[in-house]
């Protein structure tokens, strides 16, 4: 069975054939931004998720103006196809994808397998940072149907009926650890949002970093209660791993009401009075 919207994925072969296509802009977004400097797809622009894809004063996404500036300075016009890829099987590439959809740029693709697959296949790498003539990109939106804010998650917990998917690792979910090793953003309490089911983000990927088949993904999420027709909210620690899950549920499986709660555990786990559950989920 094909993915619900297979056109949102491009394969590494396709990308190598479009390295100099003027209508395509390749963008690398890594959890560890120095990866880009060490070698990237020739012609790819590098974005730093912490400084270029987040507001630098308030904890928030880019403003519309800042997003337009980033796109314009990257040589991306409204009719440019953006191909995103990155390390950790596309964690922050998916985060950038999610922000593009929020700001109305639907002509965006994810490179299946990300940086890991490109490197393992011995495809060309470049260390030069390319420069492109600036454009005048104009954003639309924001499309608020892609993002869950705290009040909505809190209401969903009390009301029920929404599938909450916690995509962090099992030790984070159960409350054994506060954050994955080496990642600094942490919280005052460990555990998970009551009622959430644990589907670690990595379960959607094959060994080579590509996405698993639709049948395998359907089985995974159906078993966790994230079925067709049900509202779904995905969360993790700061919203990047859950944007990866948001991508899978929305585009590969065709779930219509999927939101990413980017406040995630670093918001919930720091809230005074927020209910916290520990231990494994109840299946």
């Amino acid at each position: 069975m094909p993915y619900a919207q297979p056109e949102v994925l491009v394969e590494t072969d396709w990308v190598e054939q479009h390295l100099t296509d003027p209508k395509v802009r390749i963008v690398e977004v890594d959890a560890e931004p120095s990866e880009y400097e060490e070698g990237h797809i020739p012609g790819a622009v590098g974005w730093n998720w912490a400084t270029q894809l987040s507001d630098q004063r308030v904890r928030d996404l880019l403003s519309k103006e800042a997003f337009e500036m980033l796109m314009s300075h990257s040589g991306i016009a409204n009719d440019t196809m953006v191909v995103l890829y990155g390390d950790n099987n596309n964690w922050f590439a998916a985060w950038a994808f999610w922000q593009m959809v929020i700001w109305g740029h639907d002509n965006v693709r994810l490179m299946n397998g990300g940086r890991k697959k490109w490197i393992s296949e011995g495809r060309p790498l470049d260390t030069d940072r390319p420069g492109y003539p600036a454009t005048r990109f104009t954003a639309a939106g924001p499309d608020r149907t892609q993002r869950a804010m705290l009040s909505e998650v809190m209401a969903a917990v009390h009301r029920g009926g929404t599938s909450l998917i916690d995509v962090r690792s099992p030790p984070e979910f159960t409350g054994e650890i506060y954050a994955p090793p080496g990642l600094p953003e942490t919280c005052q309490r460990a555990g998970h949002i009551p009622g959430a089911r644990n589907v670690p983000w990595g379960k959607v990927c094959n060994e080579d970093g590509t996405f698993r088949s639709r049948e395998e993904l359907e089985a995974l999420y159906n078993e966790a209660g994230a079925t067709h027709g049900k509202p779904i909210i995905a969360y993790c620690r700061i919203g990047e791993r859950s944007s990866h899950t948001w991508f899978v549920l929305k585009y590969l499986l065709g779930r219509h009401d999927v939101k990413n709660y980017d406040g995630s555990w670093t918001e919930w786990g720091n809230l005074v009075g927020a209910p916290v559950a520990v231990g494994s989920d109840q299946r």
Binding site: E32, W201, G202
Partner: peptide, 24 residues
Amino acid sequence: YRVGNQYRSTVDNIDPGATVARGA
């Protein structure tokens, strides 16, 4: 792996599958 005359290494946490540390 080697890129040019430099070797790169990553240590990945098998679960959840993210990079824990890098070296060159």
